[in-house]
Computed example of a mutant assay.
Amino acid sequence: MKRHSIAAGIFLALGPATAGAQDMSGPGNIRAGRELAIAQCSECHVVVPRRGTSWQTGRPPDFTQIANMPGMTRTALLAFQHSPHPKMPNLILSDRKTDDLIAYILSLKNPGVR
């Protein structure tokens, strides 16, 4: 099974069970999360939305796609961050940096995207 399929499965499995209005907001600095994503995640993921880019087969999902997965919440992202993933480096972040990264990802959520 491809890594993006595993990640999507985890997100989809956790999302509906953890969805809640208060779960969408939380601690974290969006700007700091964006900077962290560029520095730590952009080698594999598209972390800053760009016009005209689309997901390519065999590549990890971009952060906008992750943010817009059905039921995506802070809790789902926390669970994903604390779970091991094949082919993904074991990124150990402080609680503050985790909050920042999650705040940035959730800032990419577009209510009109399904």
Rank of each mutant, 00 (worst) to 15 (best):
S5K: 11
G15V: 03
G52Y: 11
S107K: 03
K87R: 15
L106P: 00
P16E: 11
D95K: 13
V46H: 05
A37R: 00
A17L: 15
A17F: 14
H82W: 12
G58F: 11
S107H: 05
I30M: 08
A17Q: 14
I6A: 07
V48H: 01
A32W: 02
R59T: 15
V48G: 03
L101N: 01
T75Q: 13
P84W: 09
W55P: 04
C44H: 02
V47F: 05
T18V: 08
T57E: 15
T75L: 12
H85F: 11
S25Y: 10
A76H: 02
M1H: 11
C41T: 04
I102Q: 01
R31Q: 15
L91D: 07
L93S: 05
R51W: 10
P86Y: 10
A79V: 14
M88N: 10
A13T: 09
W55A: 12
F11H: 03
T57S: 15
R31K: 15
L14T: 06
S83N: 13
W55E: 14
A8G: 11
F63S: 02
V113R: 14
A76E: 05
G71M: 06
P70Y: 09
M24S: 06
S94N: 08
D99T: 02
M1S: 14
A21V: 14
N90M: 10
A37E: 00
G112N: 15
L108T: 01
L93Q: 07
L77Q: 01
N110C: 05
D99N: 15
G33R: 00
L93N: 07
L12I: 12
D23F: 04
L93V: 04
A32I: 01
P70G: 09
Q40Y: 08
A39C: 00
C41Q: 06
D100K: 05
G9T: 09
M1G: 10
G58V: 10
T53N: 10
V48T: 09
P49T: 08
Y104I: 06
H85S: 13
L106R: 02
G58A: 11
D95W: 03
M69Q: 12
S83E: 06
M69F: 13
A13R: 07
A37V: 02
L106M: 13
L14H: 00
C41V: 04
R74F: 08
L101Q: 04
D62C: 06
P61C: 09
L77N: 02
L108H: 01
R59D: 14
A37Q: 01
Q81G: 04
L12A: 06
H45D: 06
R59Y: 15
